[in-house]
Computed example of a mutant assay.
Amino acid sequence: MQRLCCIPLTIIGSAACAMAMATDYRIETLAKGLEHPWSLAFLPEGGMLVTERAGRLRFIEADGTLRDAPIAGMPEVLVDGQAGLFEVALAPDYADSDMVYLSYACGTLTANTTCLDRARFDGRRLTDRAPLFRAEPDKRGSSHYGGRLTFLPDDTLVLGLGDGFDYREQAQNPANHLGSLVRLNLDGSTPDDNPFVADSEARAELYSIGHRNIQGIVYDAMRGELLIHEHGPRGGDELNRILPGANYGWPLATHGVDYTGALVTPFTELPEFESPLLHWTPSIAPSGMTLYDGGQFPEWHGDLFVSALAGRQVRRLIREDGEIVDQEVLFTELDERIRDVRTGPDRALYLLTDSEQGRVLRVVPASPP
């Protein structure tokens, strides 16, 4: 049986910490033996797909059994440093189409980027795989790819990208995809109403720019808003509400500093940029995010949950009328880097631990509700 603790909330221009009622929970190991798991998708017939950063897509049976053989038919994935296989997501019409979407690092160490493919999953292998999108330009090194994606109710998807680390100034350049959020039709084509479509000097796929390394994306259907979080440098991790065509400031405005301690910029905010809803300084290295509907934990209804790598925790962002009023630290007793947090079809919380022997964990009430 575990308890939660309240911590100070850092919001631009204010601070608050209202004690919340502690919640008892139990953490179960559903599956183990995964090499740096990155993302998971729940299958409607039971079981789940899990990506390993090493380039493998794995199948976990409904009872938690991990199939020995990885799923065949995968693309060639660049694996080095932060490069690897990222998101797996089921198409909105998966029950009819069997389509899954995969994001991954593609190319070579001297010329690589983030790619997005779509394929059919027949229960054993991928077939009819087709490339949908390749971020441009190619870059050197193996850092800051983004890779998270989610679907919007208008039959489009958004894919978060990174700035390539050594190319951070390009996050302010709409002539490329570095440090951006892109919006695509489900077949990879560009929606006619994207905010940069009419700009001949910008990439038509762009939805927002000025990001460092997007790692979590949630669409709140009740409020009709898109939320993302991204890594800052040394501090300055951000939670942002996305507005089409907006600029989020990196690297001209940030609450973080460079890893050397030097200033990236003297500005934490500027009037031409959107300021974050919330920033974490010092950094927690946010990794995944889910919007919880309160199924097994009614007191968590409508709250955001953010997994963290450096923080070795999950943050519960407590919301009132859609606004974040407080946050709590969860699951520090695991003392593990947590790569992802998801809401399962059983309305439990699921966690992925980021290690060479990574696990899929299930969080349920300590006592049946």
Rank of each mutant, 00 (worst) to 15 (best):
5 C>R: 15
8 P>E: 14
11 I>Y: 00
17 C>H: 03
28 E>C: 02
34 L>N: 05
41 A>C: 14
46 G>Y: 00
49 L>K: 08
63 D>R: 02
65 T>A: 10
68 D>F: 07
75 P>Y: 07
81 G>Y: 14
90 L>V: 02
94 Y>P: 01
106 C>E: 13
110 T>N: 14
118 R>I: 01
125 R>E: 12
127 T>I: 09
131 P>I: 00
131 P>N: 01
133 F>K: 07
135 A>I: 07
138 D>L: 15
142 S>F: 12
142 S>V: 13
145 Y>K: 07
150 T>K: 05
151 F>N: 12
158 V>N: 05
169 E>P: 09
175 A>T: 01
180 S>I: 13
188 G>I: 03
189 S>E: 08
190 T>S: 12
192 D>P: 12
197 V>Q: 07
206 L>V: 10
207 Y>V: 03
208 S>V: 05
209 I>W: 02
211 H>Y: 00
218 V>T: 11
221 A>F: 15
222 M>I: 14
222 M>R: 15
225 E>I: 12
228 I>S: 01
233 P>L: 08
237 D>F: 01
238 E>T: 03
245 G>Y: 12
250 W>V: 06
257 V>E: 10
257 V>R: 11
268 T>G: 08
269 E>M: 09
289 M>Y: 09
300 W>F: 14
306 V>F: 00
307 S>N: 10
314 V>Y: 04
325 V>W: 02
330 L>F: 08
333 E>R: 04
337 R>P: 12
337 R>F: 11
352 L>T: 12
